[in-house]
Design a protein around this nucleic acid. Structure first.
Length: 407
DNA sequence: TGCGACACGATGACCACAAGCCCAA
DNA sequence: GGTTGGGCTTGTGGTCATCGTGTCG
C-alpha cells in the first residue's frame, strides 16, 4: 500500500521530514518547508520505499531502492550482501535539480523518487528570501557515497552511518535524538510518523501541543506491553536484542510492506498470529496490523493513538484504560504474541537479551518533566522529615543543602 | 497441587509553601 | 483596557506504606 502525502493527500509521499514526522510528496515538502526559516531547517530525507513510513538511511544501488535501517537490516539478516549508498539529509527548499544533486541516483533509474520529482510542481512563487542564509539548502555529504559491504555488523557502524546522514549544523535536536537512538534508529521519537494525520502544521495548535515527551511517558508501561521483559523503548528496538527477545517469535506480517522481508526471512516465518485491534476504528486496527520488521511503527502508532486521547496530562496505563484502550495493550501479551509454545525460540539468547534489558533498566534515568523549575529549585532545598516537607523552623532530619541533622 | 512466608518492584500518599492562576474591584 | 490585590490551586522531591507478583519450601 503506497503511502499518500500527509499534507495534500493526493500525491505519493516521497520525502520524510524528521522534525514533522511526516511523509510528504516533493511538492508539499517544498511548500510546507518554505513557510518560514524554522521549517526550512527541518531535516528531510527520502522515505523508505519498503515500509513507506520510516526515513531511508541507505540506498541499495543494485536494487535501486531506498530503505530505512530496519528494512535494510532485514536483508542482511539473511546474509545477503548489498551495495549501499548512504543517503543524505537536506534542509531548506531545494529545487528538483538540486535534489538530484543530493541524490544522484534520482536521475539514473526508475526510482519512484524520480517519478516524484517529475510530478514535483513547485507552485510557490514566493520570494525565496527566507531561505537558509547559508544557501538554498543544506545537504551534508552530498557527494559522500559511502559504499558499505556490511552496514550492520556493529552498532558503531550504524551510528556512523546515521551521523553521516545528518545535517552538519542544522537541527541539533534531530541529531541528538538520532544519536541517542542510533542503535535503534527507528525507535527514536521521530518514528511517530506512522500515525495518520500526524502532519504537523506550523499553525496547528494541536500539533504544536503534541509533545513527544508525553509520548515517551506513554511508554512507561511498555514493560506491560511487552510482557514484562522489555524496559526501554529505545533499547527495545535494538536489533541485536530484538532478535534475542523475539527470536523466531513472529509478528503479524499482514502488511504488504513486509513481503520482501518475508521472502528474505522466510525460514523464520513459521507462524502468523492473528491481530486484535485495540481500538474500534479502522485506523487503530490498521496501526496494529503492523509489520514484523518494524515493531517500532506498531508501537509508535499504538502510543500515538493512546496518547492523543490524553494529550493534556500525564499518561499512564490507567489513562489508557479510561480512554477505552484495550487492556490487551496495557497488561496483556504484545499484539503479535502467539499462544504457541516457544519451542523454536533460542532461550539462551533471549534470556541474555532480557538480562541486558534488566541491566539497562537499572541504569536508565527516567526523565521527569518539570513544569516549574522554580518550584523544583525550592523543593530541592526544602527540609524534610522522612521525606515529607516540614514547616520552616521545625525540626528536620534531612537538609538537602548540608545534609545536617537538626537533632 | 495448594498454601504460607518471603523478597522484590511498582505505585501512590504525604508534607510545606512559593508560584501560578483566577476573579473582582 | 490595564492594573492591583486577595484567595485558591498547583507542583515540587524524598520517604514510607501498600499492593501485586514471583519464588521457594
Amino acid at each position: 500500500m503506497g503511502h499518500i502525502c500527509e499534507f495534500c493527500g493526493e500525491q505519493r509521499s516521497i520525502v520524510y521530514c524528521r522534525s514533522d514526522a511526516a511523509c510528504l510528496c516533493l511538492s508539499c515538502d517544498r511548500n510546507v518547508h518554505s513557510a518560514n526559516a524554522l521549517s526550512q531547517r527541518h531535516s528531510r530525507t527520502l522515505l523508505c520505499e519498503r515500509c513507506n513510513s520510516q526515513p531511508a538511511v541507505v540506498r541499495r544501488v543494485e536494487e535501486k531502492i531506498s530503505l530505512c535501517k530496519n528494512c535494510d537490516s532485514i536483508g542482511h539478516a539473511a546474509g545477503s550482501m548489498h551495495k549501499r549508498q548512504a543517503l543524505s539529509c537536506y534542509t531548506g527548499c531545494p529545487s528538483a535539480a538540486e535534489l538530484s544533486t543530493i541524490w544522484s541516483f534520482l536521475l539514473d533509474g526508475d526510482s519512484t523518487c524520480q517519478k516524484g520529482m517529475g510530478a514535483m510542481s513547485i507552485t510557490d512563487n514566493q520570494p525565496r528570501d527566507n531561505e537558509d542564509p547559508q544557501g538554498k539548502y543544506n545537504s551534508q555529504d552530498m557527494s559522500a557515497a559511502v559504499e558499505m559491504s556490511e552496514l550492520h555488523t556493529s552498532s558503531e557502524k550504524s551510528t556512523t552511518l546515521i551521523e553521516s546522514s545528518l545535517p552538519a549544523l542544522d537541527n541539533k535536536q534531530n541529531k541528538a535524538e538520532l544519536y541517542a537512538g542510533s542503535k535503534n534508529y527507528s525507535s527514536s521519537k521521530g518514528c511517530y510518523s506512522g500515525m495518520k494525520g500526524s502532519t504537523i502544521y506550523e499553525d496547528d495548535p494541536f500539533a504544536q501541543d503534541f509533545n513527544m515527551d508525553e509520548v515517551d511517558l506513554s511508554f512507561e508501561n511498555y514493560e506491560e506491553l511487552f510482557s514484562g521483559s522489555l524496559d526501554n523503548p529505545n533499547q527495545f528496538f535494538e536489533n541485536e536484542d530484538i532478535n534475542g527477545l523475539f527470536g523466531t517469535k513472529d509478528m503479524s506480517v499482514s502488511g504488504s510492506s513486509c513481503q520482501d522481508a518475508d521472502a528474505i526471512e522466510g525460514s523464520s516465518i513459521r507462524r502468523v498470529m492473528t491481530m486484535q485491534p485495540a481500538c474500534s476504528n479502522a485506523e487503530s486496527a490498521d496501526s496494529l496490523v503492523s509489520c514484523k520488521t518494524e515493531p517500532s511503527i506498531c508501537f509508535a502508532r499504538q502510543a500515538s493513538i493512546l496518547s492523543f486521547s490524553n494529550l493534556g496530562g500525564e499518561s499512564n496505563a490507567g489513562d489508557y484504560q479510561e480512554c477505552g484502550a484495550s487492556t490487551m495493550l496495557l497488561m496483556g501479551e504484545p499484539p503479535w504474541y502467539h499462544p504457541f509454545p516457544e519451542t523454536s525460540l533460542p532461550s539462551t539468547s533471549r534470556s541474555n537479551a532480557v538480562l541486558r534489558y534488566k541491566e539497562k533498566k537499572k541504569i536508565r534515568k527516567f526523565d521527569k518533566h518539570v513544569r516549574y523549575a522554580s518550584r523544583k529549585a525550592r523543593a530541592d532545598v526544602r527540609r524534610r522529615v522522612k521525606g515529607r516537607f516540614v514547616k520552616a523552623g521545625d525540626a528536620y532530619d534531612y537538609d538537602p543543602l548540608n545534609e545536617t541533622r537538626s537533632f
